[in-house]
Design a binder for these strands. Sequence first.
DNA 1: CAGCGTCATGGCACCGGGTGTCATCGGCTA
DNA 2: TAGCCGATGACACCCGGTGCCATGACGCTG
Lengths: 187, 187
Amino acid sequence: MPRWQPDAHGRLQQAALALYGERGFENTTVAEIAERAGLTKRTFFRYFADKREVLFWGAAALEELFVTTVEGAPESAAPIDAVAAALDSAAAMFEDRRAFAAVRQQIVAATPELRERELIKLASLAGAVAAALRRRGVGDPAAILTAEAGIAVFRVAFDGWVDPANELPLQRLMRDSLDELRAIAAA
Amino acid sequence: MPRWQPDAHGRLQQAALALYGERGFENTTVAEIAERAGLTKRTFFRYFADKREVLFWGAAALEELFVTTVEGAPESAAPIDAVAAALDSAAAMFEDRRAFAAVRQQIVAATPELRERELIKLASLAGAVAAALRRRGVGDPAAILTAEAGIAVFRVAFDGWVDPANELPLQRLMRDSLDELRAIAAA
DNA sequence: CAGCGTCATGGCACCGGGTGTCATCGGCTA
DNA sequence: TAGCCGATGACACCCGGTGCCATGACGCTG
């Protein structure tokens, strides 16, 4: 018999998501999360830098997916098309997690502190995409603006996708939003 | 003789900017800021919701300027042109405060916590601009994407403007960035 | 099998941000 | 002159976050 239950990290995540959902982020203390996971506050902070970070575990993987897809796009592809390819892979990665994403998104949307964290993660994502574009030979400020616009498209499509009224696949929404952006800028 | 020194709000702002600049945001306590302003920690929190907010005092005014300019653009103007007009007025508002803006920007850029706050202010700005566009009859998601793209242009131009190497007026940088965005999306 | 080091966790004290509550007291008004 | 008002102070408190040391099961080595 192991001395400790396995997967402390996962237990903490689950406990946090449940409690944030039940009573809200601000009415949940770290001690309570730890207790539900059978651990202590001190241990929580060994796994997560702070109380918000527990909801942003996948961010690094998403960033890596974006970067590798942009880098892997055909050399002939225009910057905006490399970003479009990354939006496609991201859509594929999320497609079978809509229920979880919707719950999480609702918690984040309801809490300014969490929205701040989400925004800085997206900014980091945009920065990483811009860097990848530069590695493809795209100059500034085109690299930044392309990346920034791509992330805006991602956000708009993602928000539409988690909407309970929506029934379209994420990939479709991504493509529609990108077309919309093109139409706007062409005006 | 008045019981208290005047302009507690301004004194707190000045003290905070000075201390954040001298020793960094994280190495400054609210008690120290208050002390330099001749007040107490408790009073600081009567003027500012938190330790970060003291650096974001002008945000509401900027948002109002954007909104009124978008709303005041000629009916015939395309959404992106209404936003371009707002970028122009914003540029005019900042033009004679470059030194202050540069100091403040450097502090913000150096501190993740402050970057988060900046991002949520910009998101709020984008939301307000999108709402103003909707009032002009622009539908979704065009309103959101136009606003979001406009804010991206603002950020890129602003960052270029506070760069010590730069000598161009903000208005010029705004227009150049916007042109760049148009070129990207047309690709 | 005995000893030992490792590693995840607990325990605890501490700091600083942020809040609720009541006291203080100068100035303004009736 | 009495009394209210409004900005500030004082103080206790909660909670997020950290540094430091203790604990004890597991694996390795001799």
